[in-house]
Design a protein around this nucleic acid. Structure first.
Lengths: 335, 335
DNA sequence: TTGAAAGCGGTACCAA
DNA sequence: TTGGTACCGCTTTCAA
C-alpha cells in the first residue's frame, strides 16, 4: 500500500484545464458553471479522489461547520438524549457535532470550552456544571453564541433551554399527598445545581400548602458523587419518623433508590425525576420531560443566534409530565 | 453589546511589538523565546482576548486534531458507552471527538463519512452498518485510518475491535442447557449483521453438541426495525412446541422480551446480550462485555495508526462474560 | 533569540 | 461563464 498525496483544488484545476476558482464553483455554486465544464471538473476530481477540505473552506469565512457540546458524560441517558436531539437539528443544517465531556467538574468544563473555542465552533452549547460561566463572556462578544441547556448559565449572557423543574416537583409531591402521604422525602445528588434547587423548591412549596415553604426532615441533599444512594436510602428509612414516600431528584438517584428498596417488604412510594428505559417494566412513576426536545430546541436556538448574534437572548421553558406507573400510587403504610 | 473582531496572531504581534512568528512561538515552543518577550506577548494576547485558531494551525500540517466517530444513534447505551471510552482516550491525546449518527442505515453511513472526511478528521472510527465499506478504500490510501468497532469492515483494509460473540452465545446456551433446557430460542433484530451471525453460530453449535450445527425451530431472525419484539415473543410462546428459554440477541431485544414476559406466570428462562442499567434490579442474566473498553481500545488503535499508517492492521477480540442474575437460571417448566 | 517570506486549501472581490 | 489576485490565521523554512 502506498500513501499518496491528497489532491487539492489546484490539482483538479490543472487536470481539468480550468482555473482553481472554477473548480471551487463546481463544488459550491454549480449553476454558475457551464454543464460541460462541470462534467470535466467532476471527472478530474473523481480521478484524483478529490474531496473539498471544509476546514480550509471555513478558514476564510470565520464561521465553521462545527458546533460544540459540553456535557458531563455520555453514559448518562439524559445527556445522550440531549445530544441526540441536538445532532438531529445540526445535521439538517449541515453542521457536525463535537462532543466534549467534563466528568461533571467545573475545571473540566473550562478546559474543554477552551479546546472547543480553539476549534472555532460556530456555537457552544453546554449543560453548565461550574458555578460561573463568566469566562465565556469574552467569547460571546467575539461572536460565539453560548446556549445553556438544562440549567441557565451564570454570570453570562446566554440563551437557555430549561424545563419546569419546580412545577414538576410540585406536582409529584401533590400527587403523593393526594395518595395520603405526608412524610415525603426528597433525595438528590448532586444537590447544588439549578435543577435540584428548583425541584426542591417545588417540593417544599407543595408540602407547605398555603404556609411558608421550609426545609423538611426528609430531605437528603448530597453533593458527593462517591456516596452510594443505597446507603442513604437505607439510613433514611431507619430514622425515628421515616418517610412513607420518596422523590428521587434525577435518574441516577432513582435507580439507586430502586436498588435500595429492592426486596424490601413494604417499600415507600417512589417518584423519580427523568424517565428511563425500563421504568415501565419496573412500574416506576416518574416526572418525565423530553430531553431530546431540549437538545432540539437548543440546536434551533443556536442556529438562530448564529444567524443573528445581536438578537435578544431567550429562555425556553419546556413542560414536564407526571407519569404514574404504580410506584407513586402506593399508599402510606397504616401505622 | 458590540461584536468585535477576533484578534489574530498579527494583532497580538503588533501590540507586543514583535513579529507574528514570535507570537506563534510563545504559543507552541515557549522555551525558545526569552522570558521578557513571552510576558509581553501574553499580556498583549490577554488584552486582545486572543485564542489561537487550531483550525488554521492544522491547515498546514494536514493532520487535524479531530477524530470522527460514526454510530447508529446515541440513544443506544451500547453506542454511547463506546463513545465514552473513545472520548477518554482522545482527550488524553489532545484530540476532540466529532460524533455523527446514521440512524443505522447504510446511506446515512456513507453520507456522514463524507462529511467527516471533508473535515479532515485524523481518523475515522465507525460501527459499520452497511454491507460494504469499500467506498473508504481511497481514503485509507490517502492516509485516513479507518477503525471498525464491534463489527469488522467489509471490503476494506481496516483495524477492528470486536468481541467474542460466538463464544459468548455458546456459553449462554450451554448454561441454559445445564439448567435443563433443550428448547432454547434465539431472537434478534437486526439479524443480518456480523455480531448476530456470530452469536447465532455460537448458539447453534452449543445446541448441536458434537453434532452438526444447524438452524433450530426457535430462531427468530428479524430484520425490520419496525417490528415489535413483544409481538414476536408472544407468537413464539404460542407455537406448538414452545421454547423454555430465550436468548435475546442485544440489549434492545432483551428489554423487548422483558416487556413481553412481564406479568406472565411461568416465564421462560432469559439471557440477554449486552448488560444494561437496571438488569441487576430486574434480575436479568446477561452476556456482558465492556463496551467502554472497546471504545478505548479503538481509540488507542487509532492513535497508533495515525502515528504509523503503514503498520499491520490488527483485529482485537475482547472477551465476554456471562452474568447470572436469576432469569437465566429458571428451570424449564415440568410438562 | 528573533524575523521575513512562502504556503497550507480554499474563497471573495473584481475584472475579463 | 471564467480567471486573477489577495487573503483567511497560522506554521514552516531559512536567515539574521
Amino acid at each position: 500500500m502506498n500513501i499518496q498525496q491528497r489532491a487539492t483544488l489546484d490539482d483538479v484545476a490543472r487536470l481539468a484545464n480550468v482555473s482553481p476558482k472554477t473548480v471551487s464553483r463546481v463544488f459550491t455554486q454549480r449553476d454558475l458553471v457551464s454543464a460541460a465544464t462541470v462534467e470535466r471538473v467532476l471527472a478530474a476530481a473523481k480521478r484524483l479522489k478529490f474531496r473539498p477540505n471544509s476546514v480550509a473552506r471555513n478558514l476564510r469565512g470565520g464561521a465553521s461547520s462545527t458546533v460544540g457540546l459540553i456535557i458531563g458524560e455520555m453514559l448518562n441517558p439524559f445527556y445522550s438524549r440531549v445530544a441526540t436531539g441536538l445532532e438531529k437539528v445540526l445535521s439538517e443544517h449541515g453542521k457536525t457535532l463535537i462532543v466534549a465531556t467534563t466528568d461533571d467538574t467545573a475545571e473540566g468544563e473550562e478546559r474543554v470550552a477552551d479546546t472547543l473555542l480553539s476549534q472555532r465552533v460556530s456555537a457552544l452549547l453546554m449543560i453548565p456544571v461550574g458555578e460561573d460561566q463568566s469566562y465565556l463572556e469574552g467569547e460571546r462578544q467575539l461572536g460565539s453564541p453560548v446556549i445553556a441547556i438544562d440549567r441557565p448559565a451564570r454570570n453570562l449572557v446566554a440563551d437557555s433551554v430549561v424545563m419546569e423543574n419546580r412545577n414538576g416537583a410540585f406536582e409529584a409531591t401533590r400527587s403523593l399527598m393526594e395518595h395520603g402521604h405526608r412524610k415525603i422525602a426528597y433525595i438528590c445528588n448532586p444537590a447544588n445545581v439549578y435543577t435540584q434547587v428548583e425541584r426542591l423548591r417545588g417540593y417544599r412549596e407543595a408540602l407547605a400548602g398555603t404556609g411558608k415553604a421550609a426545609a423538611t426532615p426528609w430531605e437528603r441533599l448530597i453533593d458527593d458523587p462517591a456516596i452510594d444512594p443505597v446507603h442513604v436510602v437505607s439510613e433514611l428509612l431507619d430514622i425515628a419518623d421515616p418517610p412513607t414516600a420518596i422523590i428521587a431528584g434525577n435518574n441516577r438517584m432513582c435507580v439507586g433508590v430502586l436498588r435500595a428498596l429492592h426486596g424490601k417488604d413494604n417499600p415507600p412510594a417512589l417518584i423519580g425525576f427523568d424517565d428511563f428505559d425500563t421504568a415501565d417494566i419496573l412500574g416506576v412513576s416518574v416526572v418525565s420531560h423530553d430531553a431530546m426536545e431540549m437538545g432540539r430546541r437548543a440546536g434551533e436556538l443556536a442556529m438562530e443566534r448564529i444567524a443573528d448574534p445581536t438578537g435578544f437572548t431567550q429562555q425556553l421553558v419546556l413542560p414536564t409530565r407526571l407519569i404514574l406507573r404504580g410506584s407513586g400510587e402506593r399508599p402510606p403504610l397504616a401505622s
